[in-house]
Computed example of a mutant assay.
Amino acid sequence: MAIARHPEVAARLRALEAGAGEVTDLSEARGIAAEISRIRNAAAAEAGIRTAGEAAK
């Protein structure tokens, strides 16, 4: 839900997810995965949900 509150972020996430299956370059795939992770972690933080990374701290 937190992602839906930010249409530009939601659109970027959809574009990244759509492109992820098309990538053949490992470095580019890692960059896409990292950006998706940042978007999802930010949304989780906004929603007050702890992520696995936070639980390990």
Results as ranks from 00 to 15, higher is better:
Arg12Val: 05
Arg14Val: 12
Ala18Val: 13
Arg5Ile: 11
Glu28His: 04
Ala4Gly: 04
Ser27Pro: 00
Val23Tyr: 01
Leu16Lys: 03
Ala4Pro: 00
Arg12Gln: 14
Ala33Leu: 12
Glu35Trp: 05
Asp25Trp: 02
Ser37Leu: 11
Gly31Tyr: 04
Val9Asn: 03
Arg14Gln: 14
Ile32Ser: 00
Ala34Gly: 01
Arg40Trp: 07
Pro7Val: 11
Arg40Met: 08
Ile32Met: 08
Ser27Asp: 10
Arg40Pro: 01
Ala15Cys: 05
Ala4Gln: 15
Asp25Asn: 08
Ile36Arg: 06
Ala4Arg: 14
Ala10Glu: 10
Leu26Gln: 03
Glu17Lys: 13
Ala34Gln: 12
Arg12Tyr: 08
Pro7Ile: 10
Glu35His: 06
Ala42Lys: 07
Ala10Met: 10
Glu28Thr: 07
Thr24Phe: 01
Ile39Asn: 01
Arg12Ile: 09
Ala33Ser: 13
Ala42Asp: 11
Arg30Glu: 13
Ala43Thr: 00
Ser27Phe: 07
Thr24Arg: 02
His6Met: 13
Gly31Met: 11
Asp25Glu: 09
Ala11Glu: 15
Ala18Leu: 15
Ala10Gly: 10
Ala15Glu: 13
Glu22Gly: 00
Ala29Leu: 06
Ile36Ala: 05
Pro7Ala: 11
Gly19Trp: 06
Glu17Cys: 13
Pro7Asp: 13
Val9Ile: 15
Glu35Pro: 06
Ala20Tyr: 02
Val23Ser: 02
Arg5Gly: 13
Thr24Asp: 07
Ala29Gly: 07
Ile32Thr: 02
Leu13Trp: 06
Ala10Gln: 11
Ile3Cys: 07
Ala15Met: 13
Ala4Ser: 15
Gly19Phe: 07
Arg14Lys: 15
Asp25Phe: 01
Ala15Lys: 09
Glu8His: 15
Ala42Tyr: 03
Val9Trp: 07
Arg14Gly: 00
Asn41Phe: 07
